[in-house]
C-alpha cells in the first residue's frame, strides 16, 4: 500500500517526529511504500543540518536522513513554512542573500502542491503533529 506521512512538529519538542519515523520504518519493513514524507508547520525543523543533541539522545534528524538514503525516501520540507523558520537549501539561501544554507542531506524543499499531489496519489495519508 502507498502512504503519505505528514509531520507537523519539529524534533525534540514533541513526540510527533519520532512516532512518524517509527510508523514510516515499520510500514517500509512490512513492504509498503511511503511515497512522500511531508514536513509542515514546525515539522520543517526536522530538516535542519545544524542540530547537535546531547550524545546520549537519539539523533532523529540523522535517522530521517539515513532512512531517506537507505530506502530512497522522498523527504519534502514545505518552502513557505521553511522560509518562516529559517530552513534553507543552497538556492533559497542564495536567493534571499542569507549567510548559509542549512537543509540536511536527504531532504528537499518544495511547495505545498507536493502535499496535495501526494494526498491525491497515495492510498493513505497520516498526520503526525501536536
Amino acid at each position: 500500500m502507498n502512504f503519505v506521512v505528514v509531520v507537523n512538529e519539529g524534533p525534540y519538542q514533541h513526540q510527533a517526529s519520532y512516532t512518524a519515523y517509527r510508523f514510516t520504518r515499520s510500514a517500509l519493513e512490512k513492504g509498503h511504500k511511503i511515497m512522500r514524507v511531508f514536513f509542515y508547520h514546525d515539522g520543517v525543523n526536522n530538516g535542519t543540518s545544524l542540530t547537535v543533541p546531547p550524545q546520549d539522545e537519539p539523533q532523529i534528524v540523522k535517522q530521517w536522513c539515513q532512512l531517506a538514503q537507505d530506502r530512497d525516501l522522498d523527504l519534502v520540507v514545505c518552502v513557505a513554512a521553511a522560509q518562516r523558520r529559517g530552513i534553507m537549501d543552497h538556492r533559497e539561501a542564495e536567493r534571499h542573500e542569507l549567510s548559509a544554507p542549512n537543509l540536511a542531506p536527504g531532504f528537499r524543499i518544495a511547495g505545498l502542491g507536493q502535499l496535495i499531489d501526494a494526498s491525491i496519489d497515495a492510498e493513505r495519508l497520516l498526520v503526525f503533529g501536536d
Partner: peptide, 15 residues
C-alpha cells in the same frame, strides 16, 4: 496552525 492550514487549503483549492 490555522494560518498555515488556510495556506494549504488555498493551494488545494486550485487542484
Amino acid at each position: 496552525y490555522a494560518q498555515e492550514a488556510l495556506e494549504v487549503a488555498l493551494v488545494g483549492a486550485v487542484f
